[in-house]
């Protein structure tokens, strides 16, 4: 089947197997390997991307279901060699260790802040509950997200 969509601002059109997952399309067809796979039950959130601005676990969606959408991945966040403020906040507050959950976590956090520009700590914790991290205990992730809140 043919799928046409926009990924990180670029138009894409590819012939794909109907069963191909969006995450595999991003990783294997487009070579955007920043989006990671951490489970097979849409539980961990490592594969979180934005589809038309909403955070979506890209292992839970077929590539063909993304027809006509705008997809944003971690590769599209930094621009001109400068980290996005949220990426910078994760670095500043040591919100990552092994970094495997990080792309998904950052995308989920960016979606959270888009919807709730001034979240409380509790709202950040609930907002990120679909993204698992095994290294940080979330303490510094929460701190990073709160620090990235627009003044």
């Amino acid at each position: 089947m043919r799928v046409s969509l926009t990924v990180n601002g670029k138009d894409r059109a590819d012939e794909v197997e109907p069963r191909l997952l969006l995450v595999h399309y991003l990783r294997d067809v487009l070579g955007l390997t920043g989006t990671n796979i951490g489970c097979d039950t849409s539980s961990c959130g490592a594969c979180t991307v934005l589809v038309d601005g909403e955070s979506v676990k890209s292992c839970t969606m077929l590539a063909v279901q993304a027809e006509g959408t705008e997809v944003s991945t971690i590769e599209g966040l930094a621009s001109d060699g400068v980290l996005h403020p949220l990426q910078e906040a994760f670095r500043e507050h040591h919100g990552l260790q092994c970094g495997y959950c990080t792309p998904g976590m950052v995308m989920a956090a960016s979606s959270l802040l888009a919807e709730h520009p001034h979240p409380s700590e509790a709202e950040v914790r609930v907002g990120l509950e679909g993204n698992l991290c095994r290294c940080t205990g979330y303490h510094n992730i929460v701190k990073a997200v709160l620090s990235a809140v627009a003044p």
Partner: peptide, 21 residues
């Protein structure tokens, strides 16, 4: 000191085994 490891991990540039083609 903030970690030098972070930028490549934060941008998706880092290569885990599954990323190697």
């Amino acid at each position: 000191l903030v970690r030098r490891e972070d930028p490549e991990l934060l941008t998706g540039e880092a290569r885990f085994v599954a990323d190697l083609k």
